[in-house]
Write a protein that binds this DNA or RNA. Structure first.
Length: 643
DNA sequence: TTAGGGTTAG
């Protein structure tokens, strides 16, 4: 390497942003090194892979080279394979085959197979695999391992096993890949068998087992392996925290985090993001603040992913102000995750216009949205009734950014139309979708029928749901509520009988509230104890005050059966969110905001009660239900009764 | 002369 090349490389390492990269490019053009394929290749690598948000620039840069070499092609293919548009990786590969005289090498195949995996394109994957065979590269350790992962991503564990069987001397990485492949395709037993056959098991192999078990929801198997494994490293601990948090077991996630600290292991950025994700789910704002303090003291504030998790935890705990503070204070450049999480935070609170403004600001700052960003913005539009904007973003996603809509995007569109009352349009949209609608899609439509009391369409939708997911209790409950609102008590009774015959149980509603850093959960209709007694007593007092001072009349539509009015009133008054609210009012200091997390959607009567309480008691109440946040203040809710 | 595969992160 010449000394001028060496100088260039050390300069390049300093470039962290698009602006500095452009300055670097101007510099090498000036000194005549821009045609030096080594320097140009390093610059391309830097933009396409090393730093973020400069992939578009890398693509433009690539076009400037008259004769790109195989390194440049491989580098661009690699950068694109990790992007939100891995299909462009394939087109680059095809162009390379056409223009370049040299044959693709092991690097080309490793990167391009990764693209096929990320694109979940089995057809492309098989073609590429057969080309690798032609070049004798299919048994190459790196190529073979990527091929295994590709087949696993495409759901073909049998092909993955075949490739593994043909590998000459699989090393530990290849073994780990085949175990992961089994898990990826849902073959938990197969994964364990392969693990037992491994000639060598280092920490990573055990970690593969932990991750596989937790992703399969096999938490007890994960715990057993965790206790058995000879050496637990920080990845093992992080995997347990993240795995339990993802399965909704936030208490256990907190437990692993405390245990990790007790045994003297320093939390790393992933265990911190994991514990913050548990805070986000549980809505434990106070505990989140403690973790925030720890992050500050332990010097993790410069890590973008930690900031993102913190931002997300604050916004899911209902404190969009703190979330915004974290967002604004983020070091260096915000990542696409930061923008997306901030948008989702605003969307959950019903700040649709603000989310749209943020999207525009993001585009102006040169950050490219990915598929998840579009889920957030579409969600924001549907929850704020911004129908035209939502449609515009939906077409922009494909036309401008080349992102193919996934099932989640279609779901957002169905919600957008359905929530706004355009039920026929939503129904037509579902029937015209290019991919076949899942139960979730129909369920969104059923939810919309429930909001707008559309009994006929609800029945049609429920038929489709019964074919796809017959035992889902939520769907039955939703339909029966639709009947109840319409006063169709005979239909309600028939539905209840069929639920009982099929032994379908209603998912119990629970609500949680944090008081003095302790989480209390309430389940409607469960046995009494000291805590619930305290809640019921306060509830009685509150309801009396509401009737006298707030003019409250109970809404009973959300009760399942045709029972006497008074009994119905009893059933809604015991809803878990009311109990949590009453408990919070009994225990929390006056003037404190009451924050409640509920697993299901908040019911109509509870919603009315909370609005009245916020007015009569001069209180602020924040409820996070399954679909969004409700902030009650002065008798109004932030959802504008639109949820 | 440059780079790559398996585990944790919205």
């Amino acid at each position: 390497m010449s000394s001028s090349e060496q100088l260039c490389l050390s300069l390049l390492r300093q470039c962290k942003t698009l602006k500095t990269v452009k300055q670097f490019h101007a510099y090498i053009s000036k000194v005549g090194l821009d045609a030096n394929s080594f320097v140009a290749g390093k610059l391309l690598l830097h933009c396409a892979v090393t730093i973020s948000d400069t992939l578009d620039y890398a693509r433009r840069l690539f076009l400037l080279f008259p004769d790109p070499d195989i390194f440049m092609y491989n580098t661009l293919i690699r950068g694109l394979s990790e992007s939100s548009t891995p299909q462009y990786s394939l087109t680059t590969y095809v162009e390379m085959r056409r223009r370049l005289m040299a044959a693709p090498d092991s690097f080309s195949f490793a990167f391009i197979l990764k693209a096929a995996a990320n694109y979940r394109s089995l057809k492309a994957g098989i073609q590429l695999h057969s080309q690798a065979v032609t070049y004798g590269l299919d048994t190459h350790l790196f190529v073979g391992t990527t091929t295994i992962s590709m087949y696993a991503e495409c759901g073909c564990v049998a092909f993955a096993r075949k490739v593994f069987g043909e590998m000459f001397e699989p090393n530990v990485v290849a073994w780990n890949a085949i175990v992961t492949a089994c898990f990826r395709c849902g073959d938990v037993k197969g994964a364990k068998i392969m693990f037992n056959q491994m000639p060598f098991q280092n920490s990573t192999s055990w970690n593969v087992m932990l991750a596989g078990y937790t992703k399969a929801g096999e938490l007890e198997l994960a715990r057993t392996s965790f206790l058995e494994m000879p050496i637990k490293d920080d990845v093992s601990w992080s995997t347990m925290i993240v795995g339990f948090a993802h399965n909704g077991c936030f208490e256990e996630a907190f437990g692993f985090f405390r245990e990790l600290q007790r045994v003297g292991i320093r939390p790393n950025e992933v265990s911190l993001t994991g514990v913050l994700s548990a805070c986000a789910q549980a809505g434990t704002f106070e505990f989140g603040k403690i973790i925030h303090g720890f992050i500050e003291k332990a010097g993790f504030l410069h890590i973008i992913s930690v900031n993102n998790a913190l931002l997300d935890a604050y916004s899911r705990c209902g404190n969009v102000g703190m979330a915004h503070l974290v967002f604004e204070s983020m070091p260096e450049k915000k990542s696409i995750v930061s923008w997306t999480s901030m948008m989702a935070g605003l969307a959950m609170q019903g700040y649709g216009e603000e989310a749209v403004q943020l999207f525009n600001k993001m585009e102006k700052s040169g950050v490219r949205p990915d598929g998840i960003t579009f889920i957030s913005i579409l969600y924001a539009c549907s929850h704020a009734g911004l129908i035209e904007q939502g449609c515009w973003y939906f077409s922009k996603m494909t036309e401008v950014y080349g992102i193919e809509p996934a099932i989640e995007h279609y779901g957002c569109m169905v919600d957008l139309y359905g929530r706004a009352g355009q039920l026929e349009k939503a129904y037509d949209f579902v029937n015209q979708m290019p991919i076949s609608p899942t139960a979730i899609i129909w369920r969104i439509l059923l939810g919309a029928c429930s909001i707008h009391g559309h009994v006929k369409l609800a029945e049609r939708v429920k038929e489709r749901l019964s074919e796809l997911d017959p035992n889902n209790s939520g769907d039955h409950v939703l339909l029966s509520n639709i009947y109840a609102i319409a006063g169709k008590w005979k239909d309600v009774a028939a539905l209840r009988r069929s639920m009982a015959d099929q032994k379908i149980k209603k998912t119990p509603g629970w609500s949680m509230i944090e008081v003095d850093k302790v989480m209390y959960s309430f389940v409607a209709g469960r046995g009494r104890n000291e805590i619930t007694d305290e809640a019921y007593e306060k509830l009685r007092e509150m309801m009396l005050k509401l009737r006298v001072e707030g003019g409250y009349i109970p809404e009973v539509g959300s009760v399942l059966h045709d029972i006497e009015e008074e009994e119905k009133e009893d059933a809604v008054s015991g809803h878990s969110e009311k109990l949590a609210l009453a408990f919070g009012m009994a225990r929390l200091r006056e003037g404190r905001t009451i924050r409640i997390v509920k697993n299901l959607r908040v019911c109509g009567d509870c919603h009315t009660v909370m609005k009245l309480i916020s007015k009569v008691y001069g209180l602020e109440i924040v409820v996070r239900d399954r679909s969004r946040f409700h902030s009650f203040k002065d008798g109004f809710c932030s959802c504008r009764d639109y949820w």
